[in-house]
Nucleic acid binder design. Structure first.
Length: 904
DNA sequence: CGTCGGTCGTAC
DNA sequence: GACGTACGACCGACGT
């Protein structure tokens, strides 16, 4: 120990531990007003003030580690100052509602942090702090505040600290800065007044003058005695006029030292934080950074993990799995694509934390059971529908296992799907994020476990012990996360949707993906050749028309040619306004003035078909099955729809003749036909149901052509007199309604003046008043609750519904209107998929469901069964739910997807 | 050489 | 700024 250390030790001995007196209310307000943007949880609960105060407290605790703390709060309601001056703070607006809401949360955080807090009726936080400064005479005090009023408390053992600005003010610094002792500051404040507290002071005297006067005269009392000595006449008269009130102003700015609070320092000893409560609070409030920094990782007990390497252990685990109330499983494989993956190992978790890893294909890893033997022992349990299974994205494991000869049955839960239902707008539902958020546990990543490998990461190369820890942790964490999510699903009314629709759907989707759809590879190759030739020719024409070669695929280069070189008039800017747009609308307009735009449009059409569809699809044909196996993603869209990727089979062209040539390459297997069944106008029917609009209900109940009927309404003609043009307009209006379109958008779409478009919208709402009412009620409900729901309780949060920026708010309103309609349609077709699947399985039909395209199901059916299956599918789809209007399904069969003619 | 935002275009 | 939900190709800037 050198001399300095020794001196510090002596000093620590000599001085009692400092007491931190924290002005909670000043930080509450500062956080609220200093941060401009609105911070909320996903569900719309305001969090800005809670976050600000928590950050400040965390900084204090982290940097100073105080032993004694008191957090002081302003009392609600009037204080003693109102008693002596009724106008005190009279022009201060009431605490904003969204700040008021946060106060209990702030208090909970402070409590959970283990910090004693004080709120005394009739007093402000400043008074509590002043009283404690007075009472705790034997202790140094650090007043933590950003409020200047507290400078009057400075003294030999009292220092002021603002952790947010990191400014320290002590007695000496104050004297240097003002030339006054702290207790004289109240004289200065009495003179200058305080507008925010509605203390007028001396009109015309600000802080500068007040400070000078007190410095010159020594105190307010001396000033009042010798007011005649003030040289400036104006100032003298002002002070004379205010003299009678100044003692009152001084009483108001003087802090009370008689607040009834404990005077013993032990009352303010800091307690250990309640980490579980903090974890729950921070999770609820979405404070992920603080969660990471402040709350220690929840320990996951790895001691209970076991590697299964021999027959006895395998049998033991198979037997325990058979009796499991919920068997969590996870497969380790060679690929993220389940149709290509080979099994490397399986982890199981039955009762957390007990978990096992069964390696089957690790490289040079010591004793290891064979895949065949593991399947033999475990297969029956996995295939037993009465043993409930849980996984994270268990559809993946379901497919991998099936491809290894194991039919996984009894899927009872999936954490990815559960998380999705709780907040479908959330970006990531992967296990690592879920464990972090719901368990406060940081998982080992795949990257970490395969670190050090050269080339493409390969799980087979991971040493078994390391792989076991990783794989068991996955199964274990999945089980724990599910335990946390289930109560939330129940609380939010999502449990039935989860158990009865989304979870059973996993199995159906897995079988659809495995079935795949036959695509004519030779046909694609022929199209590729044809398109290549035509594209080359077009490219030459384009370069000739442009007068120079350039990359036609580059909007930026094209924009230079069109607008700089050829001096064509610029249309709109792009969405981000970084360049002049060259989209189809602009090019169509320009086509009247130059030959180039039309050529580019033709090029773009063909290039899109070639790159996205011909080449994209060709790459996706599975080498073994010769079919295309898309992924149906169940946890992606914000509304509840499925999405499809790798490849996306939900946007195969249909509108143009050229596009339908691609669609025609989707074929039925030999001896089969493709059957397509689609809901007619499902979105508008859902709207009719929700709105209860009499005219809309009547139209659908009458089986009318809804676009024709709408045209008749908005053009005020008999339905028989509706022209194709009128019907087209009405159709656009109908779609626009569902998306919340404006007159501007409709005008652009229809290429009519905005005034005319507004006329269509006005007449629409006049004829369908229930629709307008529904929209208003939906937006109001979103504002009220922060979310909207579908018919089956699916929820979507609309956090921006109260945004102050109009465009943001209006976008949220359109979202709120659209989500229940689109989402309910999604509910309906998901339910239909389950019912159709049940019917097919019950009938022992060989038909297989292949695709879902939002309102359409595509099946592959043995030709002989076509008529019977069509009847069953139509019947099941139409009876899936009883709405206020009938659900109508159009159905047809054909040799390929383009050749299907629909009829009722 | 990979990542990522921007633009464009396909579907419902 | 102005029509909701997706996926994906291509370009080009940027970072390794």
């Amino acid at each position: 120990m050198d001399k300095n250390d020794h001196r510090d030790a002596v000093r620590r001995e000599a001085f009692a531990a400092p007491v931190f007196l924290i002005d909670g209310s000043s930080y509450l307000y500062r956080a609220y007003f200093a941060i401009r943007q609105d911070l909320t949880t996903r569900s719309g609960f305001p969090t800005k003030a809670v976050l600000g105060v928590t950050n400040m407290l965390w900084k204090v605790l982290r940097e100073k580690d105080p032993a004694y703390v008191a957090v002081a709060w302003d009392a609600k309601g009037p204080t003693f100052r109102h008693g002596i001056y009724p106008d005190y703070k009279v022009n201060r607006p009431a605490m904003p509602d969204d700040l008021q809401l946060q106060v209990p949360r702030v208090r909970e955080v402070v409590e959970a942090l283990g910090l004693p807090q004080l709120e005394v009726p009739g007093y402000e936080a400043d008074d509590i702090i002043a009283t404690l400064v007075e009472r705790l005479r034997d202790h140094p005090v650090l007043v933590v505040s950003g409020d200047k009023d507290l400078q009057q408390l400075l003294g030999p053992r009292v220092t002021l600290w603002d952790p947010m600005k990191d400014e320290v003010l002590d007695l000496e610094a104050l004297r240097r800065r003002t030339g006054l002792d702290p207790e004289r500051l109240r004289d200065v404040m009495a003179l200058s007044g305080d507008t925010s507290d509605n203390i007028p002071g001396v009109p015309g005297v600000g802080p500068k003058t007040a400070l000078r006067l007190i410095r010159e005269f020594g105190s307010l009392d001396r000033l009042l005695e010798r007011v005649d000595e003030i040289p400036q006449k104006g100032l003298r008269e002002k002070i004379r006029a205010a003299a009678g009130d100044l003692p009152l102003w001084r009483r108001l700015v003087t802090l009370a030292t008689d607040v009834p609070v404990p005077g013993e320092v032990e009352a303010y000893r800091r307690r250990p934080p309640d980490t579980e409560r903090l974890r729950a609070l921070f999770q609820e409030l979405g404070f992920t950074r603080l969660l990471r920094e402040m709350v220690p990782d929840q320990r996951i007990d790895e001691a209970a993990y076991e590697v299964v390497r021999d027959e006895a252990a395998l049998r033991d685990w198979a037997e325990r799995a058979r009796r499991a109330e919920l068997l969590t499983l996870d497969t380790e494989t060679t690929s993220e694509i389940p149709m290509q993956a080979r099994l490397v190992g399986i982890s199981l978790c039955i009762t957390p934390p007990a978990a096992a890893y069964i390696p089957v294909a690790h490289d040079g890893a010591g004793p290891q059971l064979s895949l065949e033997r593991v399947i033999e022992a475990l297969g029956p349990v996995l295939a037993d529908p009465d043993v409930p299974k849980l996984g994270q994205n268990i559809k993946y494991d379901r497919i991998v296992l099936a491809r290894h000869g194991v039919e996984l049955r009894g899927i009872a839960g999936d954490t990815m799907v559960a998380s999705y239902l709780l907040d479908p707008s959330r970006r990531r539902h992967n296990l690592n994020d879920l464990a972090q958020e719901f368990l406060g546990h940081t998982m080992t990543t795949f990257k970490e476990v395969t670190a050090g490998q050269t080339g493409r990461p390969d799980f087979r190369k991971v040493p078994v012990e390391k792989a076991a820890a990783y794989a068991c942790e996955d199964a274990h964490a999945t089980a724990l996360v599910h335990e946390r999510l289930v109560p939330r699903l129940k609380e939010h009314g999502l449990w039935e949707l989860y158990r009865e629709i989304e979870v059973p759907l996993i199995e159906v989707l897995a079988r659809m993906e495995m079935a795949g759809i036959l695509v004519d590879a030779e046909g694609l190759d022929r199209l590729a050749d044809e398109f290549a030739e035509r594209l080359a020719a077009l490219e030459q024409d384009i370069h000739r028309a442009a007068g120079t070669p350039f990359n036609v695929n580059s909007p930026r280069q094209l924009s230079e040619i069109l607008f700089d070189r050829l001096k064509l008039p610029k249309g709109k800017k792009t969405r981000k306004r970084t360049a002049a747009s060259t989209d189809v609308e602009v090019l169509t307009e320009l086509a009247e003035r130059h030959e180039l735009p039309a050529l580019v449009l033709a090029y773009r059409n063909l290039a899109k078909l070639r790159s996205t569809y011909v080449e994209g699809l060709r790459r996706m044909i599975h080498p073994e099955t010769g079919r295309v196996h898309t992924s149906f993603n169940q946890t992606v869209t914000a509304t509840g729809r499925l999405s499809s990727s790798e490849p996306n089979l939900q946007n195969i062209p249909v509108r143009t003749e050229e596009g339908r040539r691609i669609r025609a390459l989707f074929r039925a297997a030999p001896g089969h036909v493709l059957l397509s069944a689609d809901y007619s106008q499902i979105d508008l029917r859902v709207l009719a149901h929700y709105s209860g609009d009499a005219a809309l209900l009547a139209a659908f109940r009458a089986g009318a052509d809804i676009h024709r009927r709408t045209a008749a309404e908005i053009f005020d003609v008999h339905p028989d007199l509706v022209t194709p043009e009128m019907r087209r307009v009405a159709k656009t209006v109908n779609f626009g309604i569902i998306y919340g379109m404006s007159a501007y958008g409709l005008a652009k779409e229809l290429r009519v003046p905005q005034k005319e478009a507004q006329g269509f919208i006005d007449r629409y709402f006049a004829r369908y008043p229930g629709v307008r009412r529904y929209m208003e009620e939906t937006v109001a409900a979103a504002r009220e609750k922060g979310y909207v729901t579908t018919l089956l309780g699916r929820r979507r949060y609309i956090p921006d519904i109260g945004a102050r920026v109009r465009s943001v708010r209006e976008f949220a309103e359109r979202t709120a209107i659209n989500a229940p309609i689109q989402g309910t349609a999604a509910d309906i077709i998901k339910l239909a998929m389950l019912r159709v699947d049940e019917a097919l399985r019950a009938s022992a039909s060989r038909a297989a469901m292949l695709l879902q395209v939002h309102d359409e199901l595509v099946l592959e059916v043995p030709a002989a069964e076509a008529a019977a299956v069509a009847r069953v599918v139509k019947e099941r789809m139409e009876s899936v739910m009883e709405l206020a209007v009938p659900l109508v399904v159009g159905i047809g069969t054909g040799p390929d997807w383009a050749a299907i003619e629909k009829n009722g």
